[in-house]
């Protein structure tokens, strides 16, 4: 709070003061008071005016400066009413009470939406668990039937993958921590994802190679399984039919501080203009449009969870040649210390 601005705001009081003082001086002169006495009265009035102005300024300055400072420094500015220390002047108390009321009302309002989102998430999760029952049933029926229908089973797998995507989307949107970071065997997770995609890989005649994944990483096994599944199903989906042999190669490279998991395929690749945007929400790109099977959500969720769990991910690609996804897991010293 600057005095100049404060004073500008109160310029009217100075005008009134000067007018009244002039009137008083004229009046006193009319009654023929001594010049000294008139001057003394004028000084007394002036002292009153200035001191009133300064006292009022400093009282308010203290309150408003703290308020502005707190607002500037707070990460969540809406919490500022909580920081107010009740001021000694009336207007301040009005402001305080209004701020508290609006804050509370906004919190209530936000709660309505939070509750709504929470309910929706709960319902979606429950619904997904429910729909998995008929899917399980269908898988078993198809498996048990004598003329095992591979084409139908492939479609059921597709349904299941899409349902899993929405489950993990809902989970990743949730502010709460929904994952457990622990020591996990990369070979086991890669194995689980490979087995899940086995039929699609074999039916598409893809040469599937895995090497050097016998390492442990710190991650959530279920989440990593989901993420790898998204990446691998992209590799399968975007294979290049013009090439004689399709290859998917999964490998891990280890150095002192990190482990890098690489998922390479010699598929159709991603164009240079699409590449920077593949992790954007709902981005489908040229490939997604041409093959019209993309939701644009898979890689978005993958990237988001990588950020949350502290893994790095990036993609290299050349159109018509290859795509390689690289995921970096950092070795966390903290875990090693607690384990000792």
């Amino acid at each position: 709070m600057r005095f100049r601005d404060y004073f500008k705001d109160r310029i009217y009081s100075l005008v009134i003061f000067i007018v009244l003082l002039a009137a008083a001086v004229l009046l006193m002169r009319a009654y023929r008071l001594e010049a000294e006495a008139v001057a003394a009265v004028a000084v007394i009035f002036a002292i009153f005016y200035v001191s009133e102005l300064l006292i009022d300024f400093f009282r308010k300055k203290k309150f408003y400066d703290t308020l502005v400072d707190n607002t500037d420094n707070l990460d969540k500015k809406y919490l500022v009413p909580e920081t107010i220390i009740s001021p000694g002047f009336y207007e301040g108390r009005i402001l305080e009470s209004v701020l508290r009321d609006t804050g509370k009302s906004m919190a209530d309002n936000v709660n309505v939406y939070r509750q709504g989102a929470e309910n929706f998430k709960e319902y979606v999760e429950m619904w997904i668990h429910e729909i998995k029952l008929p899917i399980s049933s269908m898988t078993l029926i198809l498996h048990n039937s004598h003329d095992k229908n591979d084409r139908m089973l492939a479609q059921v797998r597709r349904i299941n993958n899409l349902i899993e995507q929405i489950l993990y989307y809902v989970r990743s949107e949730n502010a709460e921590k929904d994952y457990i970071i622990d020591e996990c065997s990369l070979a086991r997770i890669v194995g689980a994802v490979a087995v899940r995609n086995k039929d699609d890989i074999l039916e598409n005649n893809i040469d599937f190679q895995v090497s050097d994944v016998d390492v442990t990483v710190y991650t959530d096994a279920k989440w990593l399984e989901f993420m790898l599944n998204q990446i691998l199903s992209n590799s399968i989906k975007y294979k290049d039919d013009n090439k004689d042999t399709s290859v998917i190669r999964i490998s891990a490279v280890q150095d002192k501080k990190s482990i890098e998991l690489r998922i390479y395929d010699n598929g159709i690749g991603i164009s240079g203009s699409d590449l920077p945007r593949v992790f954007d929400k709902s981005f489908t790109g040229e490939n997604g449009r041409r093959y019209s099977k993309a939701t644009g959500m898979g890689l978005y969720i993958v990237k988001k969870m990588c950020d949350k769990m502290g893994h790095d991910i990036y993609i290299e690609s050349a159109i018509g040649e290859y795509t390689e996804v690289k995921m970096t897991f950092y070795k966390n010293d903290f875990y090693n210390v607690t384990k000792m």
Binding site: V190, V195, K198, L202, F208
Partner: peptide, 12 residues
């Protein structure tokens, strides 16, 4: 095939 893949042997 499932048994092999389950044992991390990814044959075609």
């Amino acid at each position: 095939m499932t048994e092999l893949w389950n044992n991390q042997e990814y044959l075609n």
